[in-house]
């Protein structure tokens, strides 16, 4: 048994990162954003992205942050997981987030529905690269903090009212 100190790799908003066992990877306070994990269990390597917007066509600036948009983030995430030792064909995905934090009775714009749109966009992108989604916890109206363990493939999801769940 190794007694190596387990580090928590952090993923910020509109950010992505890679982790190898025994370390874990975490992103905090997902609301309408989606946290997506792509991993290869046998290689014990995983990548996590904190996606903010569904499509890079929404961008109004040239120098774009690829981690922000579902269409650009998933592609880059897969590339980096493979670079870190993951194998094409063995990759799986888990995702959480995409809540609708506020319910407005009037004037609901498209931007207010951003949570469900993010979920749909991430799903489409994973399908595009033929990566199966083995577990997901999406929608609802609660914020989530998620932590992924590449050794076991377990995703921990913490919400304010329901405590911590394993997935």
């Amino acid at each position: 048994m190794m007694s190596e100190i387990v580090q928590v790799v952090k993923v910020g908003i509109a950010d992505m990162n890679i982790v190898k066992a025994p370390h874990v990877i975490r992103t905090c306070g997902l609301g309408s954003c989606v946290g997506v994990v792509v991993y290869d269990l046998t290689k014990e390597v995983a990548g996590m992205a904190h996606v903010m917007l569904p499509d890079s066509s929404l961008a109004k600036s040239e120098n774009m942050n690829v981690a922000k948009y579902a269409d650009t983030a998933i592609e880059e995430l897969i590339r980096r997981v493979i670079e870190a030792g993951g194998r094409n064909g063995h990759l799986k995905a888990k995702m959480a987030g995409g809540a609708q934090m506020f319910q407005f009775r009037t004037g609901t714009t498209d931007m207010m529905r951003i949570g469900p749109r993010n979920v749909e966009a991430v799903r489409q992108q994973l399908q595009r690269f033929r990566i199966p989604i083995v577990a997901e916890d999406v929608g609802g109206s609660s914020g989530r903090t998620i932590e992924f363990h590449p050794k076991t493939g377990i995703l921990l999801i913490r919400t304010v009212n329901q405590g911590v769940r394993e997935m």
């Binding site: 306070g29 997902l30 309408s32 931007m111 951003i114």
Partner: peptide, 20 residues
């Protein structure tokens, strides 16, 4: 609208337009 939740989940709504 009122929400009692994680601040990241709440404030990110206000960042959507800016994030573009």
């Amino acid at each position: 609208a009122l929400s009692i939740d994680m601040i990241g989940a709440i404030l990110s709504y206000g960042l959507i337009e800016m994030s573009r």
